[in-house]
Design a protein around this nucleic acid. Structure first.
Lengths: 210, 210
DNA sequence: TAACTTAATGACTGGTTGGTCATTAAGTTA
DNA sequence: TAACTTAATGACCAACCAGTCATTAAGTTA
């Protein structure tokens, strides 16, 4: 057996994203308060001291985790909505598909659970997340709904609240995966879940035929 | 000004539930790890030492919080389902109504967020919650769905997954209230939210008319 | 009211961890 | 290869907190 300690490499560029990735994983798993900085550093393959070269404090690291990877996907979806032509329900499906690819199937999928668990302890970060992610996602779904109502494709409804009801099952899918999912022996089928949600909406949103 | 310290009263009976109530509030607000036992004791109007007369450890207190107030409501709803006659959608509405009265509008409303945030750190408690709350709630909704499918009221669908999609917005309502809700200036209307969810379901679940 | 039982207290301790900094060594320049 | 810059380290410290226990006093019994 050779000595365990690796020669220490100097890789200034790669460190921050490696550290936020490690932090995301542990924060989601254990919660902010219960996660030790030493464990984050170890998962990223550095020492605790190195972590402080790149982040001022544990809270600063938390902020960086949140701000890193969610906003770009919102911007993408805004672009998708802008150039869409076709039924409004198709637009909803396109937005969901892109979100699923960029968030739902990546490590960022853990962020909703993390944000929900820690929002009250970090109001400033929660505010940032609300303004830059939640509000914009709402606006996106809202405009699709209004488009569909204007064309007669969807029935009339309270838009603001309907948005919440549409988004809720999508968020719960991720939240569940990072919390209670460990108790189920059978694994849930995410694709089927999303498909059934959209099936219910397809029929639930459309203007009644009579 | 008179001295601050109250004469200490002896109230062995009332202590446990006062302590679990205080703990629920603080755990929901700050998370398990970030909550200090001294703060829980203070909120319950006793000293930290007193807390240890009634609970062996911080984790034991957490278990007690969870086990205290959710199971009875499930049992009630099982009774409601057993004696129900009428449409299957009416049954779903009745179950939701009772749940809203007994959980949604009480301090127990914070439990879903707490369970989700801490499930991974307390697999034993999570397992208990899964078996005694989640599984039974699922079975309840599931039997209502199958009843409706058998009578031709609902269309055919994958029951297990549809249950999840139905429950998700209801849980998110509470989770939201105890996390990101602080960021919104306008307060959401829970009644309207639940009504729209049920409206979407009423039309989304029913067998297509053609 | 004296003796007794036990609910309640809060000072204390041992372990933990966020954050610091003097030291080490990787990589670069001359 | 010698001198230099700075990324990386890990021992260390101070604050914090779960859990303990000797002491206090509320309420009860005789």
């Amino acid at each position: 057996m050779s000595p365990v300690s690796q020669p220490r490499k100097r890789r200034k560029e790669a460190r921050p994203s490696e550290l936020t990735a490690a932090a995301l994983g542990l924060f989601v798993e254990r919660g902010f308060a219960a996660t030790r900085l030493e464990d984050i550093a170890a998962r990223a393959g550095v020492s605790k001291g190195t972590l402080y070269l790149y982040f001022d404090s544990k809270e600063a690291l938390f902020k960086a985790v949140i701000q890193e990877g969610v906003v770009p996907v919102i911007a993408e979806n805004e672009a998708i909505a802008a150039r869409h032509s076709g039924s409004s329900f198709d637009l909803l499906e396109k937005l969901l598909e892109n979100w699923w690819q960029k968030i739902g199937q990546t490590d960022f999928a853990g962020i909703p659970k993390l944000m929900i668990a820690e929002a009250r302890n970090f109001p400033e970060v929660a505010q940032f997340y609300y303004e830059n992610v939640i509000r914009r996602a709402h606006a996106l779904i809202g405009s699709a709904l209004e488009r569909g109502m204007a064309s007669g494709e969807f029935r009339r409804m309270d838009v603001a609240t309907t948005i919440d009801v549409i988004i809720a099952p999508i968020l719960m899918l991720l939240i569940w995966r990072f919390s209670m999912a460990c108790c189920q022996n059978h694994e849930g089928d995410s694709q089927l879940y999303l498909q059934i949600h959209m099936d219910l909406l397809r029929q639930g949103l459309r203007a009644s035929q009579v």
